[in-house]
Design a protein around this nucleic acid. Structure first.
Lengths: 237, 237
DNA sequence: TGAGCTATGATTGCCGACAATTCAGGATGC
DNA sequence: GCATCCTGAATTGTCGGCAATCATAGCTCA
């Protein structure tokens, strides 16, 4: 069935729905902090910048609004979400409810291939951090948490963790004190070790402390929002 | 039905957007089991049945898909979600991670007005159950859980609980063994008592057992999906 | 001079139409 | 007879346009 030589479909490698592609582009731009929180996202502006119609942009904005990465006010438009101190605390409290016990389950269920995948992921993460790409490092760090939830075989929890991780990334981009020194990599190392040892209790403890550390590493000073040129911010993608 | 030339408010207050109204209508129809799980939701059909355009229906379907009440397959359409056994178990496991400790926080924070509101809600719930309106009773029962999360002052957790409760309602409508005998009302009574007594530990225990009871009250036999006439199913709304 | 009101401009909400894609049925070849 | 291919219909994905709504700027008046 698989025919590597001839592609019967003349369309580019993979015709991904435009709305999803636009949502993905915007998501990365928001998480990489290329668009400042509070920025207004005009449909026409985004559409012309990305070469798609207004309806497509609209769908993407609705999707991101569901993830709380943008806020939509009726008849007023969409704005990049600007999580405040309270929301930041709430998100990490929700994570501390979900993730520690999920890590315990993951440790008790993890197969050899699961552990190997985690180790591979961790290496990639460290490489990104070593190369100085903080944005990508934060992204991979989040995927690590999602991966653990998947190893625990909890899709529903994994989806919650995924949205929480995305919002956490935005919060970290906003309020992180020391962008360069991320102490968390050691926590991830220790987590993988605990999971590899099938030590559920230790994995739960480490995860619990890790989330507390993440929250306590934040600086909750409010920052004013600036305006940026959307076309320029999205040009590199 | 609505004549654009007449000024007599075709829709009650104009403050709610069409898409949200359509989403609400569909949500209630799905939760009340007026539309069987697995049913295809054609955009044109829904649009003409509800008197709105296809774009509006589309937005509503996207919103419901994000709540996992409908599933959208690319280029194939939207279908009413049919949660399987695994998903049911996962959802109640997620609830058992979130809700017990949230109930503890609620008990420790609840004010007198909070307790009074819970008692009012409980009376309404019992009234609905006594009148035999099982669908409304299940809905109110879910709102009770959401209200507790709000008393705990956790908006983020409350939103997760809200979606979990909605999905639980769909699961209950699908798999509940004894539609008439809902033993859970006693659990809710006991919960309010524990919260009123500011007994966090007891509230946590009760909530934990309550969720286990809900799951164990399910019958996991798979049921085939039938086809219904959408226009007729939505006519009463 | 400051506050309140009005008019203008810009942007969203909603709609129908066109093109792209998928699914079903029938025809064809082995 | 069975599998494969082709063709047709139906539905979704996407687009631009029109009306409704909101924010802003200017004007009037105390």
């Amino acid at each position: 069935m698989a025919d590597p030589s001839v592609q019967t479909t003349p369309t580019p490698p993979r015709q991904q729905a435009r709305a999803d592609a636009v949502a993905d582009t915007l998501r990365r731009a928001v998480l990489a902090h290329r668009i400042a929180p509070g920025t207004k996202l005009t449909e026409d502006e985004l559409g012309s910048a990305l070469g798609v119609g207004r309806t497509t942009v609209r769908d993407a904005l609705r999707a991101l609004a569901h993830e709380h990465l943008v806020e939509i006010h009726r008849n007023r438009g969409a704005f990049v979400a600007r999580p405040d101190k309270r929301e930041a605390v709430e998100i990490f409290e929700a994570r501390s409810l979900l993730e520690p016990r999920t890590a315990r389950s993951a440790a008790e269920r993890a197969s050899r291939t699961d552990v190997a995948a985690l180790r591979r992921h961790l290496a990639e993460e460290n490489a990104a951090m070593a190369s100085g790409d903080a944005g990508h490092a934060v992204y991979l760090s989040g995927r690590f948490h999602v991966q653990i939830a998947h190893i625990a075989n909890q899709r529903t929890v994994a989806q919650f963790v995924e949205t929480l991780v995305l919002r956490s990334s935005l919060i970290i981009a906003l309020y992180w004190q020391r962008p360069s020194a991320m102490c968390e990599c050691h926590a991830h190392d220790a987590l993988v070790d605990a999971i590899a040892a099938r030590d559920g209790a230790r994995a739960e403890d480490i995860m619990s402390g890790h989330i507390v550390d993440l929250l306590s590493g934040l600086d909750l000073a409010e920052r004013p929002a600036g305006t940026v040129d959307l076309a320029k911010a999205l040009s590199g993608l």
